[in-house]
Amino acid sequence: MVLASRNDAKLVELRRILAVAGLAVELVALPDGPDVPETGATFAENALIKARDAARVTGLPAVADDSGLAVDALGGMPGVLSARWSGLLPGAGRAERDAANNALVLAQLADVPEERRGAAFVCAAAVVTPDGAEQVVHGQMCGRLVRVPRGDGGFGYDPLFLPDGQNRTSAELSPAEKDAISHRGRAFGQLAGVLRELLAI
């Protein structure tokens, strides 16, 4: 199967999640080429846009996700704009973009008290086959945002996000600990069952 992403960190994470789910497939990254614009208004719409394009281009079953951070005090934003929240152009490096996005969210919440710093990571995971079959599942991880980034694991907003029931941010958890509770782990755990039925594996 092809992952409709060129994010190496995401590829490693999803290979790990699907392996734990016992799914015997080889997941490869999308070949080099132009990125399909993510024009959907929801995570599910964007996941399907990417998976449909990858299945069309490669002729392989394709999986994709669209994930992001929904902050209570920001009315659910950044949401589908999470990766582009700071306004940096796509040509900017991932680390630079992550740092800018995190800095902007922290600045926007600077005066927000602890009890109103609730947030959730949300994931929509889609599979599309070359013959047109498609399905979307969802996962969510609730928590709150800390005031100072902590940890050097994960990517994106992980250093800011303290999952419910944890005293460490997502970036301070081990990969296995994060996968067990994360929005992406929950969504792709469900998707593994869908893939078994859809692909008869």
Rank of each mutant, 00 (worst) to 15 (best):
residue 57 V to Y: 08
residue 84 R to L: 11
residue 17 I to R: 05
residue 20 V to I: 01
residue 54 A to E: 01
residue 112 V to A: 11
residue 114 E to V: 14
residue 96 E to Q: 15
residue 102 N to F: 00
residue 201 I to E: 13
residue 106 L to Y: 04
residue 41 A to P: 10
residue 27 L to P: 01
residue 115 E to K: 11
residue 128 V to P: 03
residue 53 D to R: 15
residue 110 A to P: 10
residue 133 A to L: 07
residue 52 R to K: 12
residue 103 A to P: 06
residue 191 L to F: 10
residue 26 E to V: 13
residue 142 C to P: 00
residue 44 A to T: 01
residue 117 R to G: 00
residue 63 V to M: 08
residue 58 T to W: 06
residue 176 A to H: 14
residue 72 D to F: 05
residue 82 S to F: 08
residue 42 T to H: 15
residue 56 R to E: 06
residue 29 A to N: 11
residue 137 V to H: 12
residue 200 A to S: 11
residue 13 E to M: 00
residue 141 M to R: 13
residue 141 M to H: 12
residue 35 D to Q: 13
residue 192 A to M: 13
residue 107 A to G: 11
residue 176 A to W: 08
residue 107 A to S: 15
residue 118 G to Q: 08
residue 119 A to N: 06
residue 29 A to I: 03
residue 45 E to G: 09
residue 18 L to F: 09
residue 68 G to W: 02
residue 150 R to G: 00
residue 116 R to W: 09
residue 175 P to Q: 14
residue 131 D to M: 04
residue 75 G to H: 01
residue 6 R to V: 02
residue 47 A to I: 01
residue 91 G to W: 00
residue 84 R to K: 15
residue 108 Q to G: 06
residue 119 A to Y: 11
residue 192 A to Q: 14
residue 30 L to D: 04
residue 32 D to L: 15
residue 38 E to C: 00
residue 140 Q to M: 10
residue 181 I to A: 15
residue 186 R to S: 02
residue 55 A to P: 00
residue 16 R to L: 01
residue 173 L to W: 10
residue 115 E to M: 04
residue 62 A to M: 03
residue 180 A to N: 11
residue 148 V to D: 04
residue 33 G to I: 00
residue 56 R to N: 06
residue 38 E to W: 05
residue 182 S to P: 04
residue 106 L to V: 02
residue 51 A to T: 01
residue 94 R to W: 08
residue 118 G to A: 12
residue 181 I to Q: 14
residue 137 V to R: 15
residue 73 A to F: 12
residue 17 I to Y: 02
residue 57 V to H: 08
residue 161 F to I: 06
residue 95 A to K: 14
residue 133 A to D: 15
residue 67 S to W: 00
residue 83 A to P: 04
residue 30 L to Y: 11
residue 136 V to C: 10
residue 121 F to D: 10
residue 76 G to Q: 05
